[in-house]
Computed example of a mutant assay.
Amino acid sequence: MDNNAYEAVKLTQELIRIPSHKYVENRESNVAEFIYDYCGKRGLEVEFQEVEGLRRNVIAKLKGNGTGRNLIFNGHTDTVPPYEMTIEPFSGEIKDGYVLGRGANDMKGALACMITAMLNIKNKGKILGGDIIFTAAVGEEEKSDGTEYLVKGGITADGAIVGEPANYGYALGHRGLEWLEIRIEGKAAHGGIPELGINAISKAAKLIQKIEEELIPKLKERQNEWMGPSVMNFGLIKGGTQPSTVADSCIIQIDRRYLPEENVKSVIKEYQDIIDQLMRGDSEFKAEIIRMDSNLMEEFDHAPLIAQPDSKIARTVYKVLKDFNKKEPNIEKRRGWTDAGVLSTYGKIPTVVTGPGDLKYSHAKDEKIPLVDLVNYVEIYTRIAEEFCK
């Protein structure tokens, strides 16, 4: 393992050992300070961008000579909590060819590879035509406030890479994301005289059936070449208080993944139309739909990543991955939401998703990332930057 590759592995371990999930005081602040110091001490231009108190983005730059394209390397510093992990979540242990720990795969490994690739270019004494702008953003696992602040702060470039795990493939597009809650109102009564009440759970069942019969078939017909179909999922249903009481309330929570020709307003309207239809046919049916606060961004929506297959960044990533893999790289078409949607839709920056690791390890009880991926993605990111920024 050469020195550059070793540095990426070592840096991944160090980042894992700094917890940065939502239950940590000031969340990403400690890992952001570490990245700031690490980049600054190695000669990169580095600054903080305040998002919320001590929660700050880190922006590091390797300046070019002004004759080429500028490239963003984007990743997030937060992780999901460790929950019921079967390994020590913050050890950064190396075992059986993997680095283990929360955030190894999603996505501290990618952050380490991006930083190491920039230092790799710098240490060669090579000055590219354009700038490489590394952005370590807070909050992607929840409201994506970090990358929203980057865009609102005016960040711009000719292309961007978001380093979510891609198993040596890449994504040109992905669906937008909206979480909705439908609240059904009933009327409580004793279980011995249920006819005096209005059962909100029964009403919710009718609503679910109507959505499955009328809306879901329509979603299946909506297809996008780079994203797959428009989809939804009933993720949670909760109603009533106890078996002997008619349920006076019930909530349904929905995960909705939508295509570029759809938007939040049109998504909500489709559910509201079904609710209105049920209310017209049943005077006892009462329901309202709200956007879930836990998914709301400050001003933006969790918009789709708009595929731009003919963009320079898309062509560059394709060429580098094909040359590196010595075969056609896989284009992922049904991946989860990423901050690439913010950079693409609101920042108007052509963006591609590719990074070390495999999505199946993200958020896992034994989260890990292959050592070989960390080694290889330093080289892949280096080649992408050298080709794109020249």
Rank of each mutant, 00 (worst) to 15 (best):
N3G: 00
A5V: 00
A5Q: 04
A8K: 09
L11P: 00
E14S: 14
V24D: 04
S29I: 08
R42Y: 11
G43P: 11
E50P: 00
N57I: 01
V58R: 04
I59W: 03
K61T: 13
K63L: 09
N65E: 12
G68T: 13
R69W: 13
L71D: 09
I72Y: 03
P82Y: 11
P82I: 09
M85D: 09
I87V: 15
I87F: 05
P89V: 03
P89I: 05
G92I: 12
I94M: 08
K95S: 03
G97A: 03
L100A: 01
C113G: 08
M114S: 02
T116A: 12
K122C: 10
I127D: 03
L128W: 14
V138E: 02
E142A: 14
E142G: 04
S144M: 15
G146T: 02
V151I: 15
G153P: 06
G153V: 07
G154W: 11
T156H: 01
A157K: 06
G159T: 07
G163S: 12
E164Y: 13
N167F: 12
L180A: 00
E181Q: 07
A189Q: 10
A189T: 11
A189S: 15
H190E: 05
I193R: 06
A200M: 11
A200C: 08
A200E: 10
A200W: 14
K206Q: 02
I211E: 02
E212R: 15
P217V: 11
P217L: 13
S230N: 14
G235Q: 05
K238G: 02
Q242V: 08
V246F: 10
V246R: 07
I251F: 06
Q253M: 13
D255K: 09
Y258K: 01
E261H: 14
K265T: 12
V267N: 02
I268K: 12
K269T: 05
I275C: 06
K286L: 09
I290Y: 01
M292V: 14
M297Y: 02
M297Q: 07
E298I: 13
H302S: 09
H302Y: 05
P304N: 08
P304Y: 10
I306T: 02
A307W: 00
Q308R: 08
D310E: 15
R315T: 11
K322E: 15
N325E: 07
D339L: 14
A340K: 06
V342E: 09
V342S: 05
I349H: 10
L359Q: 06
H363D: 07
A364M: 05
V372I: 13
L374H: 05
I380N: 04
T382Q: 13
R383G: 02
I384A: 04
